[in-house]
């Protein structure tokens, strides 16, 4: 962990991993998509709409895991001031926001033919909408405050307060009487799903996760490079000014 806190070392490791990660992502989708769209059977209750689940569930998984990552990165940055943790948090926010948005939209489009409505103010749906606004709020706060250190601190505190939403999302289907179905994957008695659907879902979860790691590494790399560009530009401006004063 400490070893990777050095941005240069992190970038060189990321550069070694990224071609493999990108290839593995493509391969996982190449296997997962035909499985999800063609080879898996229609559900006896939901019919063909069950295929939306193969992108809805991985999106929701990454939306919440991404926020957990954002919270952990923010805490690490606030406590130990590891510069890479702050860059990781900034990299995570738009990716998490995308997957939260996709979760909400694919859920709504699935809900229309299945529940007969696009939206209900049910605990699971509402807490996911709150998650979306937490991501947007995090990004807006960083943009709104000019001093990067102050912006980072304010946004980090917001993200930590927002962590309370994660257990609410997870247990919303147990605590409240929701329209959303309870968990079928992470249950004490094991997954309540037929292998013919569990297998494509697990492949899609893997594909989405590989994609997530690949994009996050690209974004952290971009942030590290942006800092270097900034530093080098400043050094050049400084040197030019010194040359002028000397002359």
């Amino acid at each position: 962990m400490h070893y990777l806190a050095n941005p240069a070392r992190f970038v060189s490791l990321a550069d070694r991993l990224l071609p493999w990660l990108a290839a593995a992502t493509a391969l996982a989708f190449l296997v997962g998509l035909p499985y999800a769209l063609l080879f898996s059977p229609p559900d006896y209750q939901q019919g063909e709409t069950v295929r939306i689940m193969y992108i809805h569930v991985p999106s929701a998984y990454l939306a919440t895991m991404g926020y957990l990552g954002l919270g952990i990165a923010s805490a690490v940055w606030l406590i130990w001031r590891h510069p890479l943790a702050d860059l990781a948090a900034v990299a995570l926010a738009p990716v998490g926001a995308l997957f939260t948005g996709l979760t909400l939209v694919t859920g709504a489009v699935w809900g229309k033919p299945t529940w007969g409505t696009w939206w209900v103010w049910d605990a699971r749906l509402t807490s996911m909408l709150v998650l979306f606004f937490l991501y947007l709020g995090y990004m807006a706060l960083r943009e709104a405050i000019e001093d990067p250190d102050k912006a980072g601190k304010a946004a980090a505190i917001l993200s930590l307060v927002g962590l309370i939403n994660l257990p609410i999302i997870k247990f919303s289907v147990d605590w409240w009487n929701t329209l959303h179905q309870p968990a079928s994957l992470l249950r004490r008695d094991g997954p309540a799903m037929d292998p013919s659907m569990l297998t494509p879902l697990l492949i899609m979860l893997g594909a989405f996760s590989l994609y997530f790691v690949t994009v996050i590494l690209w974004r952290i790399k971009a942030a590290v490079a942006a800092k270097r560009v900034d530093g080098l530009r400043r050094a050049r401006a400084h040197a030019a000014q010194r040359a002028r004063t000397a002359a």
Partner: peptide
């Protein structure tokens, strides 16, 4: 009419984000 827009939007969103992130770095 429900399934394809879901897959299409997810594809567009994920490809756009990946392309943007790759080009930026």
């Amino acid at each position: 009419a429900y399934i394809w827009p879901c897959y299409g939007l997810t594809l567009i969103g994920m490809v756009a984000l990946a392309g943007w992130s790759f080009a930026k770095q």
